[in-house]
Design a protein around this nucleic acid. Sequence first.
DNA 1: ACATAATCGAGACGGTACGTCGAGTCTTCTG
DNA 2: CAGAAGACTCGACGTACCGTCTCGATTATGT
Lengths: 200, 200, 200, 200
Amino acid sequence: MTIQEPVTARPAGRPRSEKAERAIIEATLDLVGDGMGVAELSIEAIASRAGVGKTTIYRRWSNKEELVADALATLKAPLPPLGGESVRDDLITLLRAMREDKGRSRTRCVMNVMMSDADRYPALMERFQKVAIEPRKEAMREVLRRGIRTGELRADLEVEMGLAILSGTMIWYTKWAPPGDLPADLPERIVDHVLPGFAA
Amino acid sequence: MTIQEPVTARPAGRPRSEKAERAIIEATLDLVGDGMGVAELSIEAIASRAGVGKTTIYRRWSNKEELVADALATLKAPLPPLGGESVRDDLITLLRAMREDKGRSRTRCVMNVMMSDADRYPALMERFQKVAIEPRKEAMREVLRRGIRTGELRADLEVEMGLAILSGTMIWYTKWAPPGDLPADLPERIVDHVLPGFAA
Amino acid sequence: MTIQEPVTARPAGRPRSEKAERAIIEATLDLVGDGMGVAELSIEAIASRAGVGKTTIYRRWSNKEELVADALATLKAPLPPLGGESVRDDLITLLRAMREDKGRSRTRCVMNVMMSDADRYPALMERFQKVAIEPRKEAMREVLRRGIRTGELRADLEVEMGLAILSGTMIWYTKWAPPGDLPADLPERIVDHVLPGFAA
Amino acid sequence: MTIQEPVTARPAGRPRSEKAERAIIEATLDLVGDGMGVAELSIEAIASRAGVGKTTIYRRWSNKEELVADALATLKAPLPPLGGESVRDDLITLLRAMREDKGRSRTRCVMNVMMSDADRYPALMERFQKVAIEPRKEAMREVLRRGIRTGELRADLEVEMGLAILSGTMIWYTKWAPPGDLPADLPERIVDHVLPGFAA
DNA sequence: ACATAATCGAGACGGTACGTCGAGTCTTCTG
DNA sequence: CAGAAGACTCGACGTACCGTCTCGATTATGT
């Protein structure tokens, strides 16, 4: 009888500290949340805020990009609960969620980076898309599909295009809105402008 | 008889070299066009590429942000000529122009910076808005207003919202389009999806 | 009748590996012999060359100094056999031995450290003196005392001073000799210069 | 008529600051004088104590060795004045000077490094020899030559060997003297032991 | 045979210093 | 005076070792 090798053999030596790993990611998110872009982030600052040696960071991530990617990846998108009563209400809820995020200091990271560092760090974005953006997009797609099924929306509506119109408009406003702050009823106004074109 | 003082008295000493100024701005745009963000830009690199001392840069601009702002400001927005035949055609032309820019190596700067460094360098953006963004927005507003006048669009259409929907959707696609490249007829498809909701 | 307790009761647990200890000392001497000073020696390099964990080193020695002291202490001074025919011959033999050592890769350690790290690591030296230097000094003292007894040297010669003059001169030459290499007959020349002043 | 090129054309740009250079060397000597060996010296500590950026050090010296060499080279050997009355008195004065140096905090550097780092940093020593050691050796050679001329010493005395015997003995005592401190009359005792062998 | 206990190699930990690079400022000479 | 050249201080970079600390595995002794 032979001893069964474990599937994932534990490597020799002291295992890496999960505590340190968490502290590093926390520190990174703190700094990103405080408005720092990927370029302004300094590994030294992260290490110092996390109470960790630089080596401990470099042992895990070979560059800033990968660290930030992993850090943001831990930010699961906490999707707002949808009533499911009407397409209009659910879309408003989703659009409003895009905005609310900017208020919360931690989830603000998502918007900060998505807006600013998107195409400069493509590898980062690819990872980030999967865990943070795609779920939100999928939620909105699902609402649209349901609207088509229930007959609230016209049958030949292209779901992807609908998604682009609604989200794109919302983002346009949050970034390049003309003057002053955004109106509180922005989500309602967007939906009410767009939805008639989608209705059956 | 008195000698007429010039209206703007020329200061004593050697005048600043316009050649150097142009070279600096050219070098800056080259680097930005090559994909560098504002943060990655190094004054030293600009000086070296422009064949100029760092002093000559700092004498004119007190920091990177102002230099980039001025550099981008020289990029006049070359608006596409609009036929004015139908609202649909003109909107398609305008949307297509947003995309075409990405192809040309120099005007690509506009999109690069607008997309990436928007909220990290607000002063930059403010300046940039005036010379590069606003003319394009105004052109589209004018098309929409004309559509309302001619009765192609419904009278109570909010012009600003229409602008946000069309531009926002286009930008959304250029940044977060699902897979692969963008379809060639994207502007047409956006306009055709959106316009019915705006029609009289 | 009771079982006799061993004088030094063996502590429980796995005993320290003598093999590891030897390997560590060998590695240390190798590195010192290759010209490394005490300061340049890295514990990590010693551990790696000895195929041993750093812990195994620090368990035995609390710092580099003690390790090097113990390592050098294992180097017994292999004194050259003395003919005993004449004081002159024996002194030449002893002086020559100081030089020969520099050729042998292992015993070169002795000179290396004695010359370079003497007063920076006083504790090291104290130990080292006892096992490596003192025997050589004693041998020379013995030769001088014998010379006094046999009448070859004058009766009021201070042995310690004689030792200092002979050894000091030899070392002076090996370290600060004017140009080029040392002459092969250096020991003879030193002795012949010094001895007349010591003769009866 | 042609303009005469200066022999050593001043290079373009801001000249290196002599003030910084002096501060660096002062700081280095301070640290060496405080008992640090070449290996323990840290460039960062030197820069900090000199109030200077690390770059400013690395611009001038490519490694520690060269810096220390230059620093020590500035320490001119302040030779003691010699009476010239008798060979014996002058030799005693010279030997005593070797010892006195150990007391003065700045000139202690000389002995510190000469004793400890001599053969580990050969390039350093070579430079150092020229400015610090050689003048002292030459002074002693001169005394010996004068003794030969005046007949105090025998005509066939090898000056170089005499130098080695006297200096070597003195150094031997200061480094490996048997127990306790050195006797106050050590120079006298050495000279009195050695000189008879040199006398005519 | 089996628990107890100190050791082993391996390697991660928080640090310090390394030598390099670029930032933005300053100082020199030349045009 | 503006120009280029290049020095200046400062601070972050990524690497190498420091001496300490876990780990699982090994190797003895004491029941």
